[in-house]
């Protein structure tokens, strides 16, 4: 017996995410042109950036949920916040590792202390601390409140970290907005590259929504189990 039937829309979304990912992957492999100075490794860029942006979206959603949790005190927002943090951490970690793999042949190093890399790493640390904070608290209401405060504090410091490291020079290619043309590994996107890029972005956005919905349902299920167990224990006493 399933606790609650998976909604039709969610199953549809799962298939849509799979389809979109497969399409984007096919575009990356077969349609997108090769970049001449970097070779085929440049193709990782499409998924790398999409995963990073989707990860940021996760942290952003978590912050909004945290603010809502502090305002309303509803535990639903706590579940929503945790879902955002977890998915954000996973996607951001994948972004960091894939970026590292890209950097090895292009920058000739696995890692540099440039603003984006460093900020991404510090973000992982902040949200790891968020998870540790949660695991140290048993009372659901208090956990929701304290975790929400930390999520807000952490998210405030992220842009500050970014800009403070940016004051040092960066060698990371700036893809959107102004570009420092001396930056190593920079390339101009031609139209077919842009098509591939935006379809990857769309695929990861759909993937994010599907994952988020699943994680939110899981969180609710976990909350229900904890509630029922607490009620049973009280009865037993």
């Amino acid at each position: 017996m399933k606790p609650e039937k998976t909604p039709r829309a969610l199953i549809f979304l799962d298939f849509l995410a799979l389809l979109a990912l497969a399409t984007a992957f096919a575009l990356v492999i077969f349609y997108a042109p090769f970049e001449l100075t970097m070779g085929s490794v440049q193709k990782v860029f499409y998924f790398h950036v999409a995963a990073g942006l989707a990860g940021m979206l996760g942290f952003f959603v978590a912050t909004i949920a945290a603010v809502a949790c502090l305002k309303t005190g509803s535990l639903k927002w706590d579940v929503a916040g945790l879902a955002g943090v977890e998915i954000g951490m996973v996607l951001m970690a994948l972004c960091i590792v894939s970026g590292s793999i890209w950097a090895r042949p292009v920058w000739n190093t696995w890692w540099t202390w440039d603003p984006r890399l460093t900020t991404a790493l510090i973000m992982e640390l902040i949200y790891a601390a968020y998870l540790l904070l949660r695991s140290g608290l048993d009372d659901a209401r208090r956990r929701a409140k304290l975790a929400a405060v930390y999520a807000v504090v952490g998210f405030i410091s992220v842009p500050l970290t970014f800009f403070s490291i940016r004051v040092f020079r960066t060698i990371h290619p700036v893809m959107i907005g102004s570009a420092d043309s001396s930056a190593n590994g920079l390339f101009a996107m031609n139209p077919s590259m842009q098509t591939t890029f935006f379809s990857s972005l769309a695929a990861f956005s759909i993937l994010f929504i599907a994952l988020y919905w699943h994680r939110y349902r899981l969180g609710n299920l976990q909350a229900e189990i904890n509630e029922r167990r607490a009620a049973l224990q009280e009865e037993g006493e």
Binding site: L125, A129, L132, G154, S157, T161, S164
Partner: peptide, 16 residues
Amino acid sequence: LLPVLLFPVIIPLLLA
């Protein structure tokens, strides 16, 4: 837990 929570958040401050 205090250092774990505090240090990543104050990195911009420390850097400055």
